[in-house]
Structures are given as structure tokens and as C-alpha cells.
Design a protein around this nucleic acid. Structure first.
Lengths: 194, 194
DNA sequence: CGCAACATGTAACCCGTTACATGATTAC
DNA sequence: GTAATCATGTAACGGGTTACATGTTGCG
């Protein structure tokens, strides 16, 4: 999934400058992966050449001029086309699992320390996501449907980090108690401590 | 989180050829992201130059010769060092969420179709993960601790896909029923339908 | 004075993907 | 015969990251 789609999507909501886009992407949990100068400015140039976006220069007193980009009609069509593409599975790159996988040469204490660190970081991130979910106005809500979808998007991220945290804490507890047996806690093997 | 670590890790369990590594990585859910010729063979050359791995050529009747790579003592030390690195947060690239985010220009039916497709694919992947969890011998179990950790790794993936599936199904149900309100189903906002 | 925020861009690099190249054997 | 598996590699490309380059305003 490329930056172009993310930019077209955002501009289909409201116009923005390259700087705006860069900031909003790198601050966001969903779009973070396209939050750097190079991509944004390069993509905007390409999109503009392809006629999918256009811009107007806006002069500002005491601040540098900015290029306000808007999506064109062609751009809207192209975005629609991309939105209808086959959905892709999430790409999970959990490098921590690789660390765990080959941790046999580490001591119990070293593994526990890693897991604690991991749980802490996941927990921090979880709280950030929950906080972002709370602040209004930063997401589009042109219809009840759209508002609901955006709520679900943040819930998706929260839920994802939540299972990750649960997983880490349960693994931690089991390793601390040296409970290596066949599924003491629940029974089903799933993360749903009802 | 590079391929080097993944390779060193695997070789710390047992020796393998480039071909073995490539196959085992691309078939795996955890290591899939390093499953291509180029990376594996290039990494092996670099690791060997750095003295972290060594190889012996093994001739085979009726089959091409293969280079069996083993980890060196230096390699083990280097691996240990990498295992103790700060754990990284999982990198979640859920391009589907971007599709949902800007779906305002799509009709209800189009969005429902996307969600159904997504749920189907996640469900398929989930079943693959669960199946892989069942087959023994493919993962190291040099100690009860290691066996447990590998079990937890597969459980992590299963749990991750499970929340994703639950999320898709609940979103689907809500959109079908046009329930855009504030959290009808549970109450907490979390994915735990107890 | 130095640093952060505003604002736009470029250059170099890393790493992963796709595709290409070779060549023997086995199975359909 | 033609495709798949075994086995090793290279080349070209794409996309994302880091760092560089430039210039003003405002804050501590």
C-alpha cells in the first residue's frame, strides 16, 4: 500500500500542504509509515504530474508561502479505483518474536527482562492509541457511517496492542512460574480471559 | 530486525543450506519476510565474510552439491548481542484500514463486500496458522522453556489474526444493521465478547 | 544565541521484491 | 515434453529512512 493512496485519501477529505501531510502522517498510528519529507513531497509532485491533485500557492504574513494541494476529479476516480482493490492481509513484522524464538542462549532473567521491557513499551503505545481515540475533530465525520468506521479503526489498533500486551503478560507470568506445561490458564489457547 | 539475525538464529539451532533457509523462511508465518533468494544468499555471503558463519560443501548423488552453513563461536556471541537489543514494537502495516478510512465515496454494498473479502482472507490465514501450530518437529525444543516459547509464538500469531477477524465480523455486523451508535454490543469498546 | 516550528525540497542509502540465469533430476 | 524440486547465484527496481540544504519567525 503506497503513500499515494494515503495522500489521495486525505486530500479527498480536505486540502492540505505537504508539510501538513507529513506531520499528520508521522503523528498518526495508522499512517505513520508514510511520515517523511521525501515520500510526501515526491509523491505530491508525481500525483500532480499525473493530474490527480492540483495546488494553489498561499502567501502568509511572517511565514513561508505554502502550496495547498487539492484532489482533482480524476484523482477522486483514481482513489475510488484503489479503494476497491482487493484487501490485503495486515503485514505483521514482529521482530520481538524472532528475539524470543532464538532466546535459548539467554538466561531466565534475561528473557524476563526482555519481556518486561516489551510489555512496558506495548502498554505505553496502547495508552497513546487510546488517547488519540478520545480527541475529536482530527478525523473526518461527514456521515454517521464514516464516523463509525473511524471509531472502528482506532478500536482495531487498540485491540491489536491489547492482545499483544495480554500475550506478553501471560508469557511473562508463565515463565516466572516456570509453567511450561500444556495451557494452564485458559484451556482454548486463545487470548480471551472472560 | 534484519535477515542476518533470523539466519543466525536458525543456524544456532541447526546447520542449513541457503536453499533450506529460503524455503523455511518463506513457508513460515514469523519469518516469511525474509523468504527470498537474494536476501538469503547475499546475507550468507556477508555473514561468512564477517566470520559469523562457515560452510562445508556436501556432495550429493543425483543432486547438486550444497553448502551447509553452520554458526561459528563469534556468530553465537553476535547473536546473543542482538537478542539482548531493545525489543521493538510490532510494525503494523494494515493497508486495509486505509481503504476503510477513505471509503466514504463507496456505497454500503461496496464497503460490505470489501469487509467480507477481508474477513474471509483473515479467516483463511488464521486456519493456516492454527494448522502450522499443530505440526511438531518443525520447531526447536531443546528445553521445556524453548518448547513453551515457540508454542507462545504461534499463539501470538493466532491471537493476532483472531482479533482481526473478530474486528472485521463485528464491523460487518454493525454496518449491515446500520448500527453506527456509541458501542451497542459490549460496552467497553474492546474485542472481548464474553 | 540557539533551538523549535514553519515550509519546501534533494541526495544517498538500505533493504526487500521481482525477475532473470543456469543446470540436473524426478514426476505427470 | 513440460513442469516441479533441488541448488546457487545476479541484476534491476521500488519504496522507505536518514540526512542534508535553505530560509524565516518566535521563544527562552
Amino acid at each position: 500500500m503506497d503513500v499515494h493512496t494515503a495522500i489521495l485519501g486525505w486530500l479527498s477529505w480536505k486540502p492540505a500542504s505537504g508539510y501538513d501531510l507529513k506531520r499528520v502522517f508521522s503523528d498518526s498510528e495508522i499512517f505513520y509509515w508514510s511520515g517523511n519529507n521525501n515520500q510526501v513531497y515526491k509523491s505530491l509532485l508525481e500525483l500532480q504530474k499525473a493530474g490527480l491533485v492540483s495546488y494553489q500557492v498561499q502567501q502568509q504574513a511572517n511565514l513561508p508561502a505554502k502550496k495547498i494541494y487539492s484532489i482533482t476529479e480524476t484523482g477522486r476516480l483514481e482513489l475510488r479505483r484503489r479503494l476497491l482493490d482487493e484487501p490485503e492481509l495486515p503485514e505483521l513484522q514482529k521482530s520481538f518474536l524472532i528475539q524470543m524464538a532464538w532466546a535459548e542462549s539467554l538466561s531466565d532473567d534475561e528473557i524476563l527482562a526482555l519481556l518486561e521491557k516489551y510489555a512496558g513499551e506495548v502498554s505505553d503505545r496502547l495508552r497513546i492509541c487510546q488517547a488519540q481515540a478520545a480527541q475529536p475533530g482530527s478525523t473526518p465525520e461527514r456521515s454517521a457511517r464514516e464516523g463509525y468506521i473511524w471509531k472502528r479503526i482506532t478500536e482495531n489498533l487498540v485491540a491489536t496492542y491489547q492482545v499483544e500486551l495480554d500475550w506478553a503478560l501471560e508469557t511473562l507470568a508463565a515463565l516466572r512460574g516456570k509453567r511450561y506445561g500444556t495451557n494452564w490458564p485458559g484451556g482454548g489457547g486463545d487470548e480471551q480471559p472472560c
